[in-house]
């Protein structure tokens, strides 16, 4: 049986520009009922119907899990991406009907933690907005360190400071402020868990310093959805369904498979959940792996691919789909 997430019909109830790059979208249930309860760190997949094209992108829920009258997400405009964020910014209006998935949490709090130490970079702040709201309501012990480019792009920094005061620290790149990572990692009580959401470089840096300073892997959590990258078009044969498909420049391999009427399971569409893992039957060319799911050996083997984020360049590719 498939383990994908169920879907929800929603109406866009508000569209709020937050700053030059970020816009917030509010969703309510189309039938007027309450949305499902969720846990801090959860995301939804937003289905964007743009004419003939369908894009399905994951966004972290940033509203309080205590309020199920509406969900909110924040979308950062990516002018070089495949157009999902531009579609959201440019075409989605209040009153539009959309389809989103049930919430799925791949970045869950470890509730055993004696303290939660959170590191955010840029738009990576969104899951922490929900998690801090959840923890604050339960009297949880947390501390959030948030790195931003400039004060003008410090999305929700003011709200967080107002809500949680000294539990939130902001660091501005343009003022040469840096998260004092080693000092933070060396001064936490035993039983603290570390959470990181931000650019890949920040995640790698924090994970490496935590490991060097004796933080066990079980206590370090991070979320990094890879966005599918545009690339050179290529052709693929789907052996089980007996089809040959064309993956366009702005399309992901998963989207092309879906457009052909084949529906692999998925939860994240960002290379982390493992659901859409696909066996390679034969290939003549080079894999462009972008996922965080397969091991290095899997990547080197040429036997597996994550079609949500990875691509291929070469003469021929046959997949077991």
């Amino acid at each position: 049986m498939s383990t994908g997430a169920s879907k929800l019909d929603v109406v866009v109830s508000n569209v709020v520009p937050v700053n030059e790059l970020v816009t917030r979208f509010h969703f309510r249930r189309a039938d007027g009922g309450l949305l499902p309860t969720f846990s801090g760190g959860a995301h939804v997949i937003v289905e964007m119907r743009d004419g003939e094209r369908a894009r399905l992108n994951p966004y972290s829920l940033m509203s309080s899990p205590l309020d199920t009258s509406e969900y909110t997400i924040s979308v950062r405009r990516d002018d070089l991406g495949r157009g999902g964020s531009l579609f959201m910014h440019g075409k989605v209006r209040p009153g539009d009907r959309m389809v989103i998935s049930y919430p799925v949490n791949l970045f869950s709090l470890d509730l055993r933690a004696k303290k939660h130490l959170m590191l955010a970079g840029g738009i990576g702040i969104t899951p922490f907005l929900a998690q801090t709201a959840q923890l604050a309501a339960e009297g949880g012990n947390f501390e959030l360190h948030y790195s931003v480019r400039t004060a003008a792009l410090a999305t929700y920094a003011g709200d967080l400071r107002a809500r949680f005061g000294r539990r939130v620290s902001i660091y501005h790149d343009d003022r040469d402020e840096r998260i004092p990572l080693d000092r933070l990692l060396s001064s936490q009580p035993l039983g603290t868990h570390l959470y990181i959401c931000g650019p890949a470089g920040m995640i790698d840096w924090a994970r490496a310093r935590a490991a060097a300073l004796g933080w066990p892997a079980e206590t370090v959590h991070y979320e990094h959805f890879a966005a599918p990258q545009p690339g050179v078009p290529f052709d693929v044969t789907l052996a089980l369904s007996g089809r040959t498909i064309h993956v366009a420049e702005q399309q992901s391999l998963l989207e092309a498979i879906e457009a052909a009427g084949v529906d692999p399971p998925y939860l994240c569409r960002g290379g982390v959940c493992g659901q859409c893992e696909t066996n390679v039957i034969s290939s003549d060319g080079v894999f462009l792996h972008n996922d965080h799911w397969l091991s290095d050996e899997d990547h080197a083997s040429g036997k597996k691919i994550m079609p949500c984020v990875s691509r291929f360049a070469g003469k021929s590719l046959v997949l077991e789909r």
Binding site: T3, A5, S6, P36, F38, V104
Partner: peptide, 12 residues
Amino acid sequence: KFLTNVQQGKPA
């Protein structure tokens, strides 16, 4: 593997 992927609204 199956159980860790059971999703809200889709019990098994």
